[in-house]
Amino acid sequence: MPALEPSEAGGYRTRVTSVAQEPPGEAVAVPGGSLWTLSRGSGPPMVLAHGGPGLSNNLEPVAGMVDDVARVHLYDQRGCGRSRASGPFDIATLVADLEALRTHWRHERWVVGGHSWGAALALFYALAHPDRTLGVIYLAGTAIRWGWKDGVQRERLSRLTAAERQELTALGARLESNGDERDRARFLRLMWSTDFASRAAATVLDSEPLYGYPRAEAVARAVQSDWKARLDAGIDDDLRRLTVPVLVVHGRRDPDPTGAREVADLAPRGRWVPLDNAGHSPWLERPAEMRQVLRAFLGSLS
C-alpha cells in the first residue's frame, strides 16, 4: 500500500448540508484568490485551521464550544473546499493567508488554532508572527518529526479486521496504478476509522461523509512536500524561543498518542493535555472535556 504520511490522518469529516442550508460565509480576497470564511460569536478573536492538507473546514462543533466567549473564525484553506486560489501551495503562503485574514478583520492579536495538519499551520503562523499571536491551540497535531513513529502503522492496522486489512492492501495497490475516486474514498474511510478510540465511535463515519468537499490532491501533495522540508530542517530552536501560551490537546487513543508531546515540552509556555478515551478528533468523542479545556485556556489569556 502507499505510505501514508501524518497529514493523511487529519481532518476527516465535515457535516455536509445542502447549498440552501449552508451558513452564510464571507469571501475574503487574498493574493491570487479568495478564501471562504465563516465568523461567529463575540469576544477575543481566534481562528481555527482545518486538517488535511487539501481538505475543508470541519470545525464548526469546536467553534460552538467557545463562541459565547470568543469571536471564532473558520475558513477553507486556499485551493480547498469553497476557497479559490492559485499557488503557490506552501507553508509561507498559507501563513500569509492567515495574516491577510487577521488584517482584514482588523484584529491586533488573535488566538490561532487548528486540528491535525491545521495545528501545524497554526504553530507555523505563531512562529512567524509571535507579536500577532495571543496563544496557540494545537489540537491532535502531528509530531514535529516527519513520518510516523515505529508502531503507529502497526497500531492502525490492529484496529481493522483481517478482511479490512486485506481490502486496504488491495486498494493501496490499485491507487498506486490507476485507482479511481471510489477506491480513494474507501481507502481513506478505512484508515480514518482507525483514528477513533473504538470501533463503536467510528460508526459516525457511516452516517456522515468523511468531509464536505473532495480532497484537493494537488494542494495536498504540494503542502506535504514543503511541510516535510520544514520539519526536516528542524523547528526545535524556533519552538524554544516561542513565548506565547501553547495548548496541546491530544487523545490518549490517537494512533500516535504522544507525537505532539514535544511541542508542549519545547515551548516555554507549552501545556500538554491528554484526553482519555479519545482519538484523533477528541471533540467528537469527549466533547464535555474538550469544551472545558478550551474555555479554561481562553480564560487564562484574558
Score class of each variant (00 low, 15 high):
68 D>S: 13
69 V>R: 14
71 R>F: 01
72 V>R: 02
72 V>M: 04
73 H>M: 12
74 L>W: 02
75 Y>A: 02
76 D>E: 02
76 D>I: 04
77 Q>I: 04
77 Q>W: 00
78 R>K: 14
78 R>P: 06
78 R>W: 04
78 R>T: 06
81 G>C: 10
82 R>C: 09
82 R>V: 15
83 S>R: 03
83 S>W: 03
87 G>D: 13
87 G>H: 15
87 G>Q: 11
90 D>N: 14
90 D>W: 10
92 A>L: 10
93 T>K: 08
94 L>A: 13
95 V>M: 11
95 V>W: 05
96 A>P: 01
98 L>A: 07
100 A>P: 02
102 R>D: 12
102 R>T: 10
103 T>K: 14
104 H>T: 10
107 H>A: 13
107 H>R: 13
108 E>P: 00
108 E>H: 08
109 R>I: 06
109 R>S: 11
111 V>M: 08
111 V>W: 11
112 V>W: 00
112 V>E: 06
114 G>V: 04
114 G>A: 04
116 S>Q: 10
117 W>P: 01
118 G>K: 01
119 A>K: 10
119 A>R: 05
120 A>E: 01
122 A>Y: 04
122 A>M: 14
124 F>N: 03
127 L>A: 07
128 A>F: 00
129 H>S: 11
131 D>P: 02
135 G>N: 10
136 V>L: 10
136 V>Y: 02
139 L>W: 01
139 L>I: 02
140 A>V: 04
140 A>G: 15
141 G>R: 07
141 G>D: 06
141 G>V: 09
141 G>I: 02
144 I>D: 06
146 W>T: 01
147 G>H: 03
147 G>S: 15
147 G>N: 11
147 G>Q: 10
148 W>H: 14
148 W>K: 00
148 W>D: 12
148 W>P: 06
150 D>W: 10
151 G>H: 06
151 G>D: 15
151 G>K: 04
151 G>Y: 13
151 G>L: 08
151 G>I: 11
152 V>R: 04
154 R>Y: 00
155 E>H: 05
158 S>N: 14
158 S>I: 00
158 S>E: 14
160 L>T: 06
162 A>I: 12
162 A>L: 15
162 A>R: 13
163 A>M: 03
163 A>I: 12
164 E>W: 07
164 E>R: 03
165 R>L: 08
167 E>S: 11
